[in-house]
Design a protein around this nucleic acid. Structure first.
Lengths: 213, 213
DNA sequence: ACCGTAAGTCAACATATGTTTACTTACGGA
DNA sequence: TCCGTAAGTAAACATATGTTGACTTACGGT
């Protein structure tokens, strides 16, 4: 449990710049990133309340007090995680051609790595009880739904079009549900299913809700 | 916040047995039930860790110590909630004809009352981190999936049939996802959608995953 | 080589929370 | 009516947890 002995890790003071693995000893930016990363995994897997700041700091190999320093509070760190998840979601789904959306979703859900997109999806179900965080989460989910709905002919304020947005939200909900049952609940055989196993059913699911127009 | 003044509520000591509303003043069975009910709502809405035993006791209008007395611990109460959710789920879906499963699911998801089945579904996503509770939850989800899969031709150990079970689990996951986005996250317009709005898309979703055989 | 400053550490704190223990009260059979 | 017992209450305890403030250490420009 205790971190491995504090091996100085320096000695490469004049090391080559392109060295990828070695961690700079004092680097606020990287420390921030380490915390954000550890927090995303923990929050996604265990939920907000069940995760302690000491857990996160230990995972990141960083002092607890730095959470308050860099993110103001545990709540602030959580909000930063939600924002990061939203950014990554938008970045990866944003430029997907409309007809390849199911495949893209399937790939996101299929990847079970603790830092992967599936984990990001699970994070979106986690709540801190704080209003600010709830707003961020709803914003992320709303944008994701609209992005998906747009690909299937939804236009804001167009009559009859609101059905499409509703169905897009159901598709997002379904995807998140699958992601959570896979990554957090670990329901078998769903949890061990491969991307190959998932992509075909998911395509059917999305197309049933949102027929290509 | 404080409970209304401790109106004795007795005086009907010799009251008619069929009196439905009046609460017997000392009744371990009813107290147990009150606790179970309050706990289900809280756990489903806020999650395990975010819910305190004092919250639950206050909601139930009951002393905190009685949780330990009747359920051993907070964890024990949570497990009792999961079991109750499993029972209620089995009871209501068990006798549904195979071809009416989507409608049944839709009705369950549509009801947003805090004690309703939608809430039970949300509860199944909540984790306490305890292994015992996780096993119960997985058991409930497993039975639900097999029930759904059976209605669409799944037979244990039949080759090619495992695909059906996988798809049934995806359908369950989708349903839970929708329930959570509606009841906990309160994503609009999904959250305000009526049963009428949901039943048609859900039918399509389930039939896409599990074609009637 | 020096030193100001940013980065990181340590320990303490206030509080929230699950649980237990000793006590009080009402129910209902004898 | 009386009283044993089950039901309920209140307060305290031990601990876990978020946050803070004072202290130490390394980095990098001069």
């Amino acid at each position: 449990m205790a971190a491995e002995p504090p091996v100085p890790a320096t000695g490469n003071a004049a090391a080559r710049e392109d060295e990828p693995a070695r961690r700079r000893r004092r680097d606020a930016g990287e420390t921030r990133h380490l915390l954000l990363d550890a927090a995303r995994r923990r929050f996604a897997r265990d939920g907000y309340a069940a995760t302690t700041v000491r857990d996160i700091a230990d995972d990141a190999g960083v002092n607890v007090a730095l959470i308050s320093r860099y993110f103001s509070s545990k709540e602030g760190l959580f909000e930063a995680c939600l924002r990061a998840a939203g950014d990554e979601l938008r970045r990866t789904t944003g430029q997907t051609p409309a007809d390849q959306v199911p495949e893209a979703i399937a790939r996101h859900i299929a990847d079970l790595g603790t830092a992967g997109l599936s984990s990001q999806l699970a994070l979106l179900l986690r709540s801190s009880g704080d209003a600010g965080a709830d707003d961020i989460r709803r914003g992320v989910l709303h944008r994701a739904s609209e992005q998906l709905a747009s690909a299937r002919g939804w236009r804001p304020d167009e009559p009859g079009s609101d059905q499409i947005l509703l169905r897009a939200q159901m598709a997002v909900a379904a995807g998140i549900g699958v992601a959570v049952l896979r990554s957090s609940i670990r329901l078998e055989p769903l949890s061990s299913a491969t991307e190959q196993d998932l992509v075909e059913p998911l395509r059917g699911l999305v197309n049933a809700l949102l027929p290509p127009h």
